[in-house]
Design a binder for these strands. Structure first.
Lengths: 238, 238
DNA sequence: CGGGCAATTGACAATTATCAAAACTTGTGG
DNA sequence: CCACAAGTTTTGATAATTGTCAATTGCCCG
């Protein structure tokens, strides 16, 4: 009896499961547990009793680290199809929380480790995902260490747009683009960009005044000129 | 005929090779190539003709990313026994250069991929190393996004001390500690900490005035009070 | 011993943070 | 459906950390 149906899963061919042939999915089905986590709730803490890993089916997860006095840095945002957790390793000192309501397809760490060892292609997909996270972290290090406040905010808006509407990246010029749902509050955005909430707000306004975006509700905006926004997100060649 | 001797290698049981039994080392020996890179020289660029990977035998490698206008961020420092390069993936947009004179034990990407697929334990050690790099990157994101200038400099000195003299971490209190060789110039340090070289210099002096360190030549210093330096590197609980 | 790069020092500017108050959402319950 | 409360966000005034620019000093190596 299958508790879920991997074969008809929304992310079946975009998550790491894509590495597995239909046949092998039966095995996964027996281990997978669907779980919904409401916005703001903790998904796992360092040193949880039962270490788990999961595919993100929908929603956005934020990973964060903090200093003892409360200063917080969001060190990663994870979107649907991404793989959360760390087989073959512990710790890392990050906390995972649901930024929006999240649906997970979860496994125990042990279960996943077994699958990875058994299925070589799955292991390779996992390695690739991990390396992608490393690349994303380093890209963000460049942002945190060297970009100005307005460049950071522009980069963040583009990141959200690209992750939420992958199609639009390719569409040319200033065609009407779908509104972007920001998965973070101002405070969280500030913690992601290494700024204060006030500075984030001011920069968003600046981008709006410049006509690059249009700000609707607190969490929604439309990109009016993607090209100029991209130019604002990092300098161009002289 | 063996070009090197893995069995007697200085890092044989600390690099990922530790995963392999002596018997399997014969295979490695046939592929490994020792290579010395002088300080400042490029090790690999993104999209090199022959993608390579390597164990760092001695010296320090810096990984960096840049914006088009020249702003640079060092996104990783790699020390002896660490594994450089990315099997099963390309790109990442980072440049690897020798920070000091470096000795590498290098392989082509293809060779290493073959070894990883063939030897499960090696693969797992590689995964663990990659995850360690991810953790290090995230720790640095916290530093870049949220720490003050002096906290950053203190953190950097401690990082160098710990990586160069792993023994001293355990030694208690204010016993005489070996002098620390900084592998980076002021400019490079600034690019690692997301500061300017002037600010780095000022903070080093501040730490010296406070009696936490003693600054010898430009690249050498001694930690006089490790405990207080650690306290300066991040805040403590109230 | 001198040339050249690297580091220090100092004066000043600027970006971003801090603090405080007002305006606005959002959700709840009558 | 409206009113109200709580939490966010915006706005403004001011401060502070860090950056910029320029000049000097120091150090390494031929």
């Amino acid at each position: 009896m299958l508790r879920n149906n991997c074969l008809s899963c929304a992310i079946r061919d975009r998550a790491i499961c894509q590495a597995l042939p239909d046949a092998a999915l039966v095995q996964l089905n027996q281990m997978a547990r669907r779980r919904t986590v409401k916005a703001g709730q903790r998904i796992f803490e360092d040193g949880a009793d039962v270490p788990m890993v999961a595919n993100i089916v929908s929603g956005v997860v934020r990973l964060s680290k903090s200093l003892a006095d409360g200063r917080t840095q969001i060190v990663g945002l994870m979107f649907p199809t991404e793989f959360l957790g760390r087989p073959f390793a512990m710790g890392g000192g990050v906390m995972a929380e649901a930024a929006t309501t999240v649906v997970l397809c979860s496994f125990t760490q042990r279960q996943m480790e077994h699958m990875l060892v058994t299925h070589g292609e799955l292991q390779q997909h996992f390695v690739r995902r991990t390396i992608e996270q490393l690349d994303a972290a380093r890209e963000w290090m460049l942002l945190l260490g060297r970009k100005t406040a307005i460049e950071r905010v522009a980069s963040f808006i583009l990141l959200c747009a690209d992750k939420m509407h992958p199609e639009d990246c390719r569409s040319e010029g200033r065609a009407a683009l779908a509104p972007v749902e920001l998965p973070l509050s101002r405070t969280e955005t500030a913690d992601f960009l290494g700024l204060t909430l006030e500075t984030v707000g001011r920069m968003i306004k600046k981008l709006e005044t410049a006509g690059l975006i249009e700000n609707h509700s607190n969490r929604t905006l439309t990109i009016l000129d993607r090209e100029r926004l991209a130019r604002q997100s990092e300098p161009e060649l002289p």
